[in-house]
Simulated assay, not measured.
Amino acid sequence: MDGFVLVLLLAALPAAGNFAGGLLAEVLNVSDRALSLALHLAAGIVLAVVGLELMPEALTATPAWVPVLALAAGGLGFIGLERLIDSVRRRLAGDDSGSGPWAIFAGVGLDLFSDGVMIGAGTIINPTLGLLLALGQVPADAPEGFAAIATLRRAGVPRGKRILLAASFGIPVLVGAALGYFILRAAPELVTVSVLAFTGGILLCVVIEEMLTEAHDVATSRLGPVVLTVGFALFAAISAYLG
């Protein structure tokens, strides 16, 4: 059980980084242009997570077509996620913020879930590896938390609710860490990487269909493509030096 406590402590690091990014969105007066650029930055980071972390690991499994199929199935997962969000919104009286901000929020939560799975599984292999994985996620998760909460703020979600939502980002990473530690550690590698690939497929759809669409709806900027690639490069550097 001491090992599981360590996993939870390590998983709390990216959750704290994400929460800090969300709090920063509360104290700063975020302009439309700044929000658009923040969404581009977060999109670049998530694309890098999928392209440089999730899929390279998934493609080492045999047969490789299973995680590839799981990645494609992530598109169906995204459709299901959108329907779930719309259903919840209809049940919430007075919520007319649209599904875009909530889909972005859910996408960031899924990214944290994948972080937790990797931290849980990595800590089993070597506690030092788990620590490096956790530390490497912190600078990547902070911009995502900022973008998610700033988008909800622009959509008119009440401040108290936004702070609770920012704090709730700790749930998916802790759940993912527990899943990686207790369940996926005993599962075949093919199952573990397929779960991560499926999550990656959903994240790709969230980035393209929601994050970038929302960024362009909020404001247009010539710096958008630059910030997008900076986000990708930021995570690439983290992966290269802390991965």
Rank of each mutant, 00 (worst) to 15 (best):
M1H: 11
D2T: 14
G3W: 12
G3T: 12
F4V: 08
L9W: 03
A16I: 14
G17F: 07
N18G: 14
F19Y: 15
L24Q: 04
A25N: 03
V27G: 02
N29T: 08
D32W: 01
A34W: 12
L37P: 02
A42G: 11
A43H: 05
I45T: 03
L47D: 04
M55Y: 01
E57I: 00
E57C: 00
A61G: 08
A61L: 04
P63F: 11
W65V: 13
V66S: 03
P67C: 08
V68A: 13
A70Y: 02
A73Y: 02
G74R: 02
F78N: 06
F78S: 07
E82F: 02
R83Q: 14
I85T: 10
R91V: 03
A93W: 00
D95A: 08
D95L: 08
S99H: 10
A103S: 10
A106L: 01
D115G: 01
G120L: 07
G130M: 09
L131E: 13
L132Q: 12
L133W: 06
E144T: 09
G145F: 07
A147R: 04
A147N: 05
I149R: 11
I149A: 12
A155I: 00
V157P: 05
I163Q: 08
G170Q: 10
G170I: 08
V173G: 10
L174P: 00
A177R: 02
A177D: 04
A177Y: 01
V191R: 01
V193N: 01
V195K: 03
L203V: 04
C205M: 14
I208Q: 14
E209L: 14
A215C: 10
T220M: 09
P225A: 13
V227L: 13
F232C: 05
F235T: 05
S239D: 06
Y241G: 09
G243R: 06
G243N: 09
